[in-house]
């Protein structure tokens, strides 16, 4: 039976991750993204060219994977993760790959995965650095164990810092490797925080501990359902 891998966002990070997973046997890819290709994205969406500008990213990537890589065509859902829809999308998946560009979606998807007990791989890239956090529910630290809650004030997102294409490619590739490890005999081995610093040419991996007072994964957790008011941070438009 094949594993259903849901990619939330197939932009700069999800795109290289999907390409790396496309030919892996026994994986069914599902793309959830409602964004369109822009000319300014082309440097990091390596499978696309001028002709794709304006096309939905998810459809264009699914077509590329089928036609050029001769792999099974991914399922495409032209939508975004919202508090209303996220549980249905996550419940249908075996593993969730989250490469969105804003903290509201990151925490929303992390919470849905925690509630549904689905493993997740979260990736982000800003400027010259990036992080990957892989989570095996009830076994390893979750996104909230590490990053707690939506930042207030001066956290770094793509609205305030650019994205360097080789970093998104590197992060997407590492996420794909974590997905493969999670599908293997020892999924918990994939559970770690990897931090990439392109200026130092350095990848650092850390096994994270669960927090005993985590609002999502501790015994006395306070997050027991998706409540839209928890994710009301400004969205990033790029």
């Amino acid at each position: 039976m094949s594993a259903r891998v849901l990619l939330v966002g197939v932009g700069g990070i999800g795109h290289p991750c999907a390409l790396a997973l496309a030919a892996v046997p026994d994986i069914e890819l599902v793309f959830l993204d409602d964004d369109r290709v822009e000319r300014s994205n082309l440097h990091r969406l390596v499978a696309f060219d001028e002709a794709h500008v304006g096309a939905p990213k998810a459809h264009a990537l699914a077509e590329h994977i089928e036609r050029e890589l001769h792999a099974t065509r991914p399922v495409v859902i032209v939508d975004r993760a919202t508090p209303d829809s996220v549980r249905a999308h996550v419940d249908d998946a075996d593993i969730v790959v989250e490469g969105s560009d804003n903290f509201a979606t990151k925490f929303l998807v992390a919470d849905a995965c925690g509630l549904a007990g689905k493993p997740s791989v979260h990736g982000a890239a800003v400027g010259w650095s990036g992080t990957v956090l892989s989570v095996v529910p009830a076994r390893s630290a979750c996104y909230r164990c590490v990053f707690e809650d939506l930042p207030v004030g001066d956290a770094v997102d793509c609205a305030t810092a650019g994205v360097f294409a080789p970093v998104t490619a590197m992060i997407g590739a590492v996420m794909a490797a974590h997905v493969r490890e999670m599908l293997g005999p020892e999924p918990a081995r994939a559970a770690k925080l990897s931090h990439f610093d392109a200026t130092a040419g350095m990848f650092r991996h850390r096994t994270m501990q669960r927090r005993s007072d985590c609002p999502l994964c501790c015994e006395a957790r306070v997050i027991t359902a998706i409540d839209a008011s928890r994710y009301s941070a400004p969205l990033c438009s790029h």
């Binding site: 969105s100 793509c158 501990q209 990033c236």
Partner: peptide
């Protein structure tokens, strides 16, 4: 998971700051 800000450090120790980031669409 140590003693937070009161964690003792000694000569030669190395601290790393890792912020949460979002981005890469």
């Amino acid at each position: 998971f140590l003693d937070g800000l009161d964690t003792p450090v000694k000569d030669g120790d190395s601290l790393t700051i890792v912020p949460a980031i979002a981005g890469g669409r």
